[in-house]
Every structure is written in structure tokens, then in C-alpha cells.
Design a binder for these strands. Structure first.
Lengths: 94, 94
DNA sequence: CAGTAGTGTAAAAAATACTTAACATGTCTT
DNA sequence: AAGACATGTTAAGTATTTTTTACACTACTG
């Protein structure tokens, strides 16, 4: 099928294998809430390239701690509102 | 001067250049508060090597978001209690 | 239609995070 | 003194994140 073709294709060509990260994010949502900031604008504010923003939004990898903190600061929310670590179950009431 | 000698020395030998991270941490303190957990114990719980813990405690580099989240989880505190972002250098049109 | 803005893909290279392995030092205990 | 333990250092390698460059697609606009 198509998916396995892509995965095996990437692996056999010795390229970046997606390691399953336990971190998800709401960058895309927060970006739209922030006056529909574009990827390019966000990238510039953070000081990274547009491709980096794309990759993070798509969950292809999780960013460095620096980039994560900068996103949180730009969106004006705590880091945990941007990135969620799936290693622990979190609920509203504890 | 001495500083530039050290920097150029390291650079010319092709080794790890310390990029000034704006992130500080309280790993060492939290580790002692956590029943004086050793670096080796912490490393094992996180799933990294002892050298990685040492480097992070010494501020030689800031960890990945994954490692940061795992530390916070192990110490039972929010991420911001382990790592502090000192604020970014803002360019006037940033 | 032609041009522009926003998003997406790709590949190679650079930068940074992390590992492996070996050795050094101080402290504490036997 | 010898051994164990916690911390620290170095070097060389692997893995992951980020950059650079280039091209493609859709939607909108003049």
C-alpha cells in the first residue's frame, strides 16, 4: 500500500526515520487564534525557518526546548498549552 | 584575550561550540530534593546516559523537549519548575 | 490570465543533542 | 591501603533538529 511504500522508501534510502515522539502540539490552532498568524510570521518571530514550523506542526519531530519556550511566549500561554507530553495522563481535575 | 583564545581554540579543533542557551535549570537542586537521587539514577529513569544529565546540569546544552518533560514528570513538578526560559533577544522588528 | 500569498515537499548539509567508552578525582567505608 | 561510589572530563561516533535551496499546489486578486 501507499503508506508502507513511503516508509520503506525512506528507510531504504537511509533518510530521516520518524521516531515516534510522545509529544503532540497545538501550534496550528494557537497560530490561528493569534490573529491567524502565518507560518512564515511565526517562524520569523521565533527565529527559525518556515520549514521548521511546518515540521513541528506536522509532528515530524518535536522542537528543542528553546523553540518550545519561544512559541509559548509568543502565544502568551504556558508551555504545556502548546506541547503535551503523552507520558502522563492529564485531566482537568487532577 | 583569553576568552577569544578559548573560543577560537575550541572552534579550530572542530569541537562542540557552546551556543549560549537562554535556558537555565534547577535539575541539581530537584535531584537532591528527590531523596538525593544520583545522576546515574536520574539518567536511568529518563532513559539517557549519565553524561547527558551532567551536561544538562552544567548547562552545556539544553535538552530535547522529551527529556525536559520526563525530568518534570520524575520530579513531580511542572516543566517550568525545572527549566526557566530567560527571555529572548528581541529585535526591533521581530 | 498573470501575479501573489500561504502552505507543502524534498534533499543535502550544518548544528545540536545524545551515546559509548575510557579514565580521573574526592569522599566515604572497611 | 583498597574498594566502592558519585561526580566530572574527554574523544569520537550516532541521532535528531534546523537550515538552505528549490520547486509545486491551491486560493485569491488585479
Amino acid at each position: 500500500m501507499f503508506l508502507s511504500f513511503l516508509i520503506i522508501g525512506a528507510a531504504s534510502r537511509g533518510r530521516q526515520m520518524a521516531k515516534k515522539t510522545r509529544i503532540s502540539n497545538d501550534v496550528r490552532t494557537l497560530r490561528f487564534l493569534a490573529d491567524e498568524m502565518t507560518q512564515a510570521e511565526l517562524a520569523k518571530k521565533i527565529g527559525v525557518t518556515r520549514q521548521t514550523v511546518i515540521a513541528i506542526e506536522q509532528g515530524r519531530y518535536s522542537p528543542s526546548l528553546e523553540v518550545a519556550f519561544q512559541m509559548a511566549e509568543i502565544f502568551g500561554v504556558p508551555l504545556e498549552k502548546v506541547f503535551q507530553y503523552a507520558g502522563r495522563v492529564v485531566s482537568d481535575n487532577g
